[in-house]
């Protein structure tokens, strides 16, 4: 069984008229880097919540189908049971920081799960070093910038040693520089072997690292595949997904009958591919 399995999963929040997720079928293998995108209200957040059991354990409502994460059904296991498997980073950084300093924040999760204090200390030191939080150690969350807060929130999530890192628009409240830093950290985690599910609309930044792109609309998965395939589909225009400029260039060239050998994700990609084509032709 795959690490994350959605089997015909549907969900409707209490008090809502429409399904937030409609018969979603999805399987994610260990080590994948999945980017989820789609217009607002399309069910991305609900999808994230379903992976760590907040749906249906915390947010109640109508459910059909099943979600299995690491072979555990989210219907039968509490969010706390899933906490060691799925780590969820949320959109609003300040709502994720519940203690008065960074060390306590990182320790909060493992403390809750009853991890041995010596081991917690090790994790705290490791993560403070890894995410460059040395100068923040003793700071109150209120004294930090949004980017710093989100880095601390990441550290606090990683302290649980999850198998899956799910991040729900972690950069939407941040300035571009902090946002890139967070996204780079996430990509780094994936290179180290972490399975990543990232909700993000800045595809020009994340598409190059992602192994898979999922588009959602009105509660359903409408496209699913490698980014270079999905980004060429017409559905992107239909649901208003902003595709990377380099892909745009690729498509324009193609419409003029100029075929590049591969789909570029970034400006650098595009230059490299151009150079290869030009050098190949002149040789």
């Amino acid at each position: 069984m795959a690490l994350i399995e959605f089997n015909d999963f549907s969900f409707k929040y209490v008090g809502s008229d429409s399904l937030a997720l409609k018969k979603v079928n999805l399987s994610v293998e260990a080590g994948e880097y999945v980017v989820v995108s789609g217009p607002s209200g399309c069910g991305k957040t609900t999808l994230c919540r379903a992976i760590n059991g907040l749906v249906p354990q915390f947010h109640r409502g109508y459910i059909a189908g099943n979600v299995f994460v690491d072979s555990k059904s989210t219907r039968e296991n509490s969010v706390a049971d899933m906490a060691g498997i799925t780590g969820l980073v949320f959109q609003n950084p300040s709502n994720q920081l519940v203690t008065l300093n960074v060390e306590k924040e990182i320790a909060f999760g493992p403390e809750n799960l009853g991890v041995d204090p010596a081991e917690i200390r090790k994790r705290v030191e490791h993560l403070i070093h890894l995410l460059g939080l040395e100068h923040l150690r003793e700071k109150h969350p209120h004294e930090m910038s949004g980017g710093e807060q989100q880095r601390v929130a990441m550290a606090a999530t990683l302290a649980l040693r999850p198998k899956i890192l799910v991040a729900d628009e972690p950069t939407s409240n941040l300035d571009p520089q902090s946002a890139e830093m967070i996204l780079e950290l996430i990509a780094e985690q994936n290179r180290e072997g972490m399975t990543v599910v990232l909700v993000e609309h800045r595809l020009d930044v994340v598409a190059k690292d992602a192994s898979r792109l999922i588009l959602m609309n009105e509660g359903s998965v409408v496209a699913d595949g490698p980014p270079e395939d999905v980004l060429l589909m017409d559905i992107c225009q239909d649901i208003g997904i902003g595709i990377p400029k380099a892909v745009e260039v690729f498509k324009r060239l193609r419409s003029k009958d100029l075929h590049l050998p591969e789909v570029p994700m970034t400006g650098e990609d595009l230059v490299r591919i151009f150079r290869e084509v030009v050098e190949h032709d002149s040789a």
Binding site: N52, A80, T86, L88, N112, D116, I120
Partner: peptide, 14 residues
Amino acid sequence: ESRGFGACENRTYL
């Protein structure tokens, strides 16, 4: 909740 608040009877302290 996602970080296991109240999950364990024997909560430890850093």
